[in-house]
Design a protein around this nucleic acid. Sequence first.
DNA 1: GCCATCATGTAAAAGGTTACATGATTTT
DNA 2: AAAATCATGTAACCTTTTACATGATGGC
Lengths: 163, 163
Amino acid sequence: MSLRHAILGLLARKPSTGYELSGMFDASLRSAWHARHSQIYPELARLEEGGLVEVVDRGPRGSKTYALTDDGRTELRRWLVDDEPDRSQRNESAVRLFLNQLLDPADRRKVFTRDLEHVEAETAALLDLRERMDPDEPFAAQIELGLRINEVLATWLREQAER
Amino acid sequence: MSLRHAILGLLARKPSTGYELSGMFDASLRSAWHARHSQIYPELARLEEGGLVEVVDRGPRGSKTYALTDDGRTELRRWLVDDEPDRSQRNESAVRLFLNQLLDPADRRKVFTRDLEHVEAETAALLDLRERMDPDEPFAAQIELGLRINEVLATWLREQAER
DNA sequence: GCCATCATGTAAAAGGTTACATGATTTT
DNA sequence: AAAATCATGTAACCTTTTACATGATGGC
């Protein structure tokens, strides 16, 4: 399980309420992870009980701002550095790519064109993000990686669609 | 849900027993999807009940070989071509990449080096697979894509490790 | 005869999604 | 005053993992 680590990671960047975390799972981590508030609130309660996070502020509408404790920071570092990543997680896009060979040429072209559109939209979003961003923000390198991977994908998809 | 579609896809390539499917989820789909036999057998039963697959052979040890029916083939095509792919699936590697910025330089280098070793091992496995493969097999293009993405990843990881 | 592998299933527990439920503030 | 947004929680349901359970066959 590592919803707990995703939450610890987001809280390490900035102390937040469960509601704000919910927004970050939609925005920053968009395609990488999605967690609903119904999962976030109970997990925050468990993390607090385990002493990995603590409530550092309360807002006017009953909101609770959580931050990492020292134990939380230690656990996050341990997970990132010492735990072998679980690389076996399911990826529907890869399964579809693998199965595309089964389609006849017309269907295959249709699918590749749809995928290409999606990659191009994502590239546009990343370019936009990079433009509006502080150039020496540490996240810049990750955006660069995303752009390079999307370029490879777009090239490959165009080749396939033209076959 | 699309474990059912992954199974339909594998059966479209070749009629198989549940045991063989279980092996394919480990081998062909390795990092893209992993399903245990405890999930596969009940799903095969449901697919048979729904008329999407049928038993076409029985082996000496009580094995049942399943194949797609016409309905199964139709449903697989519908899913691949007409269903909008679910691109929001969780990806632990991406979360780790996103959180790496939180680490101090020594830890970050350690993590990038570990990732680089993994990418290089995967590249070697893909090269080996390509070598031992029929050159006009339709799967060749997917291997090519994997190699290109891994090259981008390796380059990026080396840049990051040297920073 | 023994061990590895083939082969299928069920049950319990954990993780994740959808739906239900409520209420406070801020904006229009 | 109404609507949007902020804010938290629980319950029912579905999916996935781990553990339990059993047995046949082929090679040594």
